[in-house]
Protein backbone atom coordinates (compact mmCIF):
# COMPACT_ATOMS: atom_id res chain seq x y z
CA UNK A 1 0.00 0.00 0.00
CA UNK A 2 1.63 3.23 -1.08
CA UNK A 3 0.01 6.31 0.30
CA UNK A 4 0.11 9.92 -0.70
CA UNK A 5 1.30 13.01 1.06
CA UNK A 6 -1.30 14.85 3.08
CA UNK A 7 -0.80 18.57 2.83
CA UNK A 8 -2.64 21.31 4.71
CA UNK A 9 -2.01 24.87 3.58
CA UNK A 10 -3.15 27.79 5.70
CA UNK A 11 -6.21 25.99 6.97
CA UNK A 12 -8.63 27.85 9.20
CA UNK A 13 -11.68 26.27 10.86
CA UNK A 14 -14.27 27.76 13.15
CA UNK A 15 -17.25 26.64 15.19
CA UNK A 16 -19.59 29.55 14.63
CA UNK A 17 -17.75 32.59 15.95
CA UNK A 18 -15.06 30.49 17.70
CA UNK A 19 -11.96 30.14 15.54
CA UNK A 20 -10.47 26.80 16.50
CA UNK A 21 -7.49 26.67 14.16
CA UNK A 22 -5.83 29.50 12.23
CA UNK A 23 -3.43 29.28 9.34
CA UNK A 24 -2.41 25.71 9.98
CA UNK A 25 0.01 24.27 7.45
CA UNK A 26 1.42 20.82 7.81
CA UNK A 27 2.60 17.85 5.81
CA UNK A 28 2.32 14.15 6.43
CA UNK A 29 4.54 12.17 4.03
CA UNK A 30 3.56 8.57 3.23
CA UNK A 31 4.68 5.88 5.63
CA UNK A 32 5.51 8.31 8.43
CA UNK A 33 4.12 8.80 11.90
CA UNK A 34 3.51 12.49 12.48
CA UNK A 35 2.43 13.79 15.87
CA UNK A 36 0.44 16.90 16.74
CA UNK A 37 0.95 18.03 20.31
CA UNK A 38 -0.84 20.70 22.25
CA UNK A 39 -2.80 21.33 25.39
CA UNK A 40 -6.57 21.18 25.89
CA UNK A 41 -8.50 23.23 23.41
CA UNK A 42 -5.45 23.93 21.26
CA UNK A 43 -7.36 22.73 18.22
CA UNK A 44 -5.83 19.29 17.71
CA UNK A 45 -9.10 17.44 17.22
CA UNK A 46 -10.32 20.22 14.97
CA UNK A 47 -7.37 19.66 12.64
CA UNK A 48 -8.28 15.99 12.33
CA UNK A 49 -11.98 16.72 11.90
CA UNK A 50 -11.19 19.22 9.20
CA UNK A 51 -9.07 16.67 7.35
CA UNK A 52 -11.77 14.01 7.53
CA UNK A 53 -14.48 16.38 6.33
CA UNK A 54 -16.46 16.58 9.56
CA UNK A 55 -15.63 20.27 9.84
CA UNK A 56 -15.53 22.38 6.71
CA UNK A 57 -12.64 24.87 6.80
CA UNK A 58 -13.38 28.53 6.25
CA UNK A 59 -10.03 29.06 4.55
CA UNK A 60 -7.10 27.12 3.22
CA UNK A 61 -6.57 23.99 1.24
CA UNK A 62 -6.24 20.32 2.06
CA UNK A 63 -4.68 17.98 -0.46
CA UNK A 64 -4.13 14.28 -0.37
CA UNK A 65 -1.71 13.36 -3.12
CA UNK A 66 -3.15 14.86 -6.28
CA UNK A 67 -6.66 15.22 -4.83
CA UNK A 68 -8.02 18.43 -3.40
CA UNK A 69 -10.13 17.16 -0.51
CA UNK A 70 -10.97 20.52 1.04
CA UNK A 71 -14.50 20.48 2.43
CA UNK A 72 -15.66 17.38 0.57
CA UNK A 73 -17.99 14.74 1.96
CA UNK A 74 -16.56 12.56 4.78
CA UNK A 75 -17.52 9.42 2.86
CA UNK A 76 -15.47 10.54 -0.14
CA UNK A 77 -12.49 11.17 2.10
CA UNK A 78 -12.75 7.67 3.55
CA UNK A 79 -12.79 6.37 -0.02
CA UNK A 80 -9.59 8.28 -0.77
CA UNK A 81 -7.97 6.19 1.98
CA UNK A 82 -8.15 8.43 5.06
CA UNK A 83 -9.69 6.88 8.19
CA UNK A 84 -10.38 8.75 11.39
CA UNK A 85 -10.23 7.18 14.86
CA UNK A 86 -12.25 9.75 16.78
CA UNK A 87 -11.46 11.10 20.22
CA UNK A 88 -13.19 9.03 22.89
CA UNK A 89 -13.45 5.93 20.63
CA UNK A 90 -17.06 6.53 19.55
CA UNK A 91 -17.78 2.86 18.86
CA UNK A 92 -21.34 1.77 18.07
CA UNK A 93 -22.33 0.68 21.59
CA UNK A 94 -25.11 -1.79 20.81
CA UNK A 95 -23.64 -3.32 17.69
CA UNK A 96 -21.49 -6.40 18.06
CA UNK A 97 -17.74 -6.06 17.75
CA UNK A 98 -18.01 -7.77 14.39
CA UNK A 99 -20.70 -5.40 13.09
CA UNK A 100 -18.65 -2.45 14.31
CA UNK A 101 -15.77 -3.71 12.20
CA UNK A 102 -18.01 -4.32 9.20
CA UNK A 103 -19.23 -0.74 9.46
CA UNK A 104 -15.60 0.32 9.23
CA UNK A 105 -15.58 -1.41 5.85
CA UNK A 106 -18.79 0.32 4.73
CA UNK A 107 -17.19 2.22 1.89
CA UNK A 108 -15.19 -0.72 0.55
CA UNK A 109 -15.99 -1.49 -3.06
CA UNK A 110 -14.58 -4.97 -3.17
CA UNK A 111 -16.74 -6.74 -0.59
CA UNK A 112 -15.04 -10.08 -1.13
CA UNK A 113 -11.88 -8.77 0.53
CA UNK A 114 -13.69 -7.88 3.73
CA UNK A 115 -13.56 -11.32 5.45
CA UNK A 116 -9.83 -11.53 4.71
CA UNK A 117 -9.27 -8.04 6.12
CA UNK A 118 -11.23 -9.00 9.20
CA UNK A 119 -8.75 -11.80 9.83
CA UNK A 120 -5.83 -9.47 9.20
CA UNK A 121 -7.19 -7.01 11.75
CA UNK A 122 -7.74 -9.79 14.29
CA UNK A 123 -4.11 -10.67 13.82
CA UNK A 124 -3.15 -7.25 15.21
CA UNK A 125 -5.87 -7.19 17.87
CA UNK A 126 -6.61 -10.80 18.84
CA UNK A 127 -8.75 -9.82 21.82
CA UNK A 128 -11.40 -8.54 19.40
CA UNK A 129 -11.73 -11.96 17.83
CA UNK A 130 -12.65 -13.45 21.20
CA UNK A 131 -15.23 -10.71 21.76
CA UNK A 132 -16.52 -10.80 18.21
CA UNK A 133 -20.17 -11.43 19.04
CA UNK A 134 -20.42 -9.13 22.07
CA UNK A 135 -21.95 -5.67 21.95
CA UNK A 136 -19.17 -3.08 21.89
CA UNK A 137 -20.42 -1.40 25.04
CA UNK A 138 -19.40 -4.43 27.07
CA UNK A 139 -15.74 -3.96 26.15
CA UNK A 140 -13.35 -2.22 28.52
CA UNK A 141 -12.09 1.25 27.63
CA UNK A 142 -8.86 -0.14 26.25
CA UNK A 143 -10.62 -2.78 24.23
CA UNK A 144 -12.96 -0.12 22.85
CA UNK A 145 -9.93 1.87 21.78
CA UNK A 146 -8.58 -1.22 20.04
CA UNK A 147 -11.95 -1.68 18.37
CA UNK A 148 -11.95 1.93 17.19
CA UNK A 149 -8.50 1.45 15.66
CA UNK A 150 -9.47 -1.88 14.12
CA UNK A 151 -12.66 -0.36 12.74
CA UNK A 152 -10.65 2.35 11.02
CA UNK A 153 -8.27 -0.28 9.61
CA UNK A 154 -11.22 -2.09 8.03
CA UNK A 155 -11.55 0.73 5.50
CA UNK A 156 -8.11 -0.33 4.28
CA UNK A 157 -6.75 3.19 4.69
CA UNK A 158 -3.40 4.51 3.59
CA UNK A 159 -3.60 7.21 6.29
CA UNK A 160 -5.06 6.88 9.77
CA UNK A 161 -5.94 9.95 11.83
CA UNK A 162 -5.64 8.95 15.49
CA UNK A 163 -7.14 11.24 18.09
CA UNK A 164 -5.71 10.65 21.56
CA UNK A 165 -5.62 6.87 21.68
CA UNK A 166 -4.27 6.99 25.24
CA UNK A 167 -7.30 8.87 26.58
CA UNK A 168 -8.33 7.41 29.92
CA UNK A 169 -6.11 4.34 29.62
CA UNK A 170 -3.63 2.91 32.09
CA UNK A 171 0.06 3.45 31.22
CA UNK A 172 0.41 -0.25 30.48
CA UNK A 173 -2.51 -0.35 28.09
CA UNK A 174 -1.36 2.88 26.50
CA UNK A 175 1.98 1.31 25.68
CA UNK A 176 0.24 -1.76 24.31
CA UNK A 177 -1.89 0.40 22.02
CA UNK A 178 1.12 2.34 20.84
CA UNK A 179 2.95 -0.86 20.04
CA UNK A 180 0.05 -1.91 17.85
CA UNK A 181 0.05 1.47 16.13
CA UNK A 182 3.75 1.22 15.37
CA UNK A 183 3.30 -2.32 14.08
CA UNK A 184 0.52 -1.22 11.76
CA UNK A 185 2.72 1.58 10.51
CA UNK A 186 5.78 -0.61 9.95
CA UNK A 187 4.12 -3.73 8.58
CA UNK A 188 1.29 -2.28 6.53
CA UNK A 189 2.99 0.97 5.65
CA UNK A 190 -0.01 2.90 6.92
CA UNK A 191 0.74 6.58 7.44
CA UNK A 192 -0.32 7.88 10.85
CA UNK A 193 -1.26 11.37 11.97
CA UNK A 194 -1.33 11.14 15.73
CA UNK A 195 -2.83 13.62 18.16
CA UNK A 196 -1.67 13.10 21.72
CA UNK A 197 -1.62 14.71 25.11
CA UNK A 198 0.99 12.23 26.22
CA UNK A 199 3.81 14.06 24.46
CA UNK A 200 6.53 11.85 25.82
CA UNK A 201 5.07 8.77 24.25
CA UNK A 202 4.07 10.53 21.04
CA UNK A 203 7.56 11.97 20.52
CA UNK A 204 9.01 8.53 21.06
CA UNK A 205 7.02 6.79 18.35
CA UNK A 206 6.62 9.60 15.83
CA UNK A 207 9.08 10.75 13.20
CA UNK A 208 7.99 14.33 13.04
CA UNK A 209 6.03 16.59 15.37
CA UNK A 210 4.01 19.77 15.29
CA UNK A 211 3.20 21.78 18.38
CA UNK A 212 -0.12 23.58 18.42
CA UNK A 213 -1.06 26.47 20.67
CA UNK A 214 -4.34 28.37 20.48
CA UNK A 215 -5.01 27.08 17.04
CA UNK A 216 -1.63 28.00 15.61
CA UNK A 217 1.40 25.85 14.93
CA UNK A 218 4.24 27.20 17.05
CA UNK A 219 6.87 24.52 16.48
CA UNK A 220 7.58 21.96 13.81
CA UNK A 221 10.56 19.67 13.86
CA UNK A 222 11.78 16.11 13.95
CA UNK A 223 10.75 14.42 17.14
CA UNK A 224 14.32 13.93 18.13
CA UNK A 225 14.96 17.67 18.10
CA UNK A 226 11.59 18.47 19.66
CA UNK A 227 12.45 16.22 22.57
CA UNK A 228 15.62 18.21 23.11
CA UNK A 229 13.95 21.62 23.10
CA UNK A 230 13.77 23.27 26.49
CA UNK A 231 10.29 24.76 26.31
CA UNK A 232 8.78 21.59 24.92
CA UNK A 233 10.40 19.64 27.70
CA UNK A 234 8.99 22.02 30.23
CA UNK A 235 5.46 22.29 28.86
CA UNK A 236 4.79 18.86 27.53
CA UNK A 237 7.27 16.43 29.02
CA UNK A 238 8.10 17.72 32.47
CA UNK A 239 5.14 18.70 34.58
CA UNK A 240 2.87 15.91 33.59
CA UNK A 241 0.70 13.62 35.61
CA UNK A 242 -1.05 11.32 33.23
CA UNK A 243 -3.41 9.71 35.71
CA UNK A 244 -5.01 12.85 37.03
CA UNK A 245 -5.12 14.54 33.65
CA UNK A 246 -6.74 11.55 32.12
CA UNK A 247 -9.62 11.76 34.52
CA UNK A 248 -9.99 15.47 34.33
CA UNK A 249 -10.12 15.42 30.56
CA UNK A 250 -12.67 12.64 30.68
CA UNK A 251 -15.21 14.94 32.27
CA UNK A 252 -14.50 17.69 29.79
CA UNK A 253 -15.35 15.52 26.86
CA UNK A 254 -17.81 17.01 24.47
CA UNK A 255 -19.98 15.01 22.16
CA UNK A 256 -20.12 15.88 18.51
CA UNK A 257 -23.30 17.20 17.02
Amino acid sequence: MTGSTLKLSNVESAYGPVKAIRGVSLQVPPGMIVAVLGSNGAGKSTILKTISGMVVPSRGKIEYGAHDITGIDPAAIVRYGISHVPEGRDVFPLLSVRDNLLMGAYTRKNRTEVPRDLEAVFDYLPILKERCAQPAQLLSGGQQQMLAIARAMMASPSLILLDEPSLGLSPKLTIEIFEIIVRVNRERGTTILLVEQNANLALNVADHGYVLENGRIVADDSCERLRAKEDIKEFYLGMRETGIRGERRWKKKKTWR
Binding site: A75, P86, F92, D99, N100, M103, Y106, T107
Partner: peptide, 23 residues
Protein backbone atom coordinates in the same frame (compact mmCIF):
# COMPACT_ATOMS: atom_id res chain seq x y z
CA UNK B 1 -28.08 -6.55 5.71
CA UNK B 2 -25.30 -4.03 5.42
CA UNK B 3 -27.70 -1.16 5.02
CA UNK B 4 -29.80 -2.31 7.99
CA UNK B 5 -26.78 -2.53 10.27
CA UNK B 6 -25.68 0.87 8.99
CA UNK B 7 -29.07 2.31 9.96
CA UNK B 8 -28.62 0.93 13.46
CA UNK B 9 -25.09 2.30 13.57
CA UNK B 10 -26.18 5.77 12.51
CA UNK B 11 -28.88 5.72 15.18
CA UNK B 12 -26.39 4.74 17.89
CA UNK B 13 -23.73 7.26 16.98
CA UNK B 14 -24.32 9.65 14.17
CA UNK B 15 -20.82 11.08 14.41
CA UNK B 16 -19.15 7.66 14.17
CA UNK B 17 -21.38 6.80 11.23
CA UNK B 18 -20.13 9.88 9.40
CA UNK B 19 -16.54 8.94 10.27
CA UNK B 20 -17.08 5.51 8.70
CA UNK B 21 -18.35 7.09 5.51
CA UNK B 22 -21.90 5.85 6.05
CA UNK B 23 -24.23 8.10 4.03
Amino acid sequence: TRIGVAMQAASQSQSAAYYMGIP
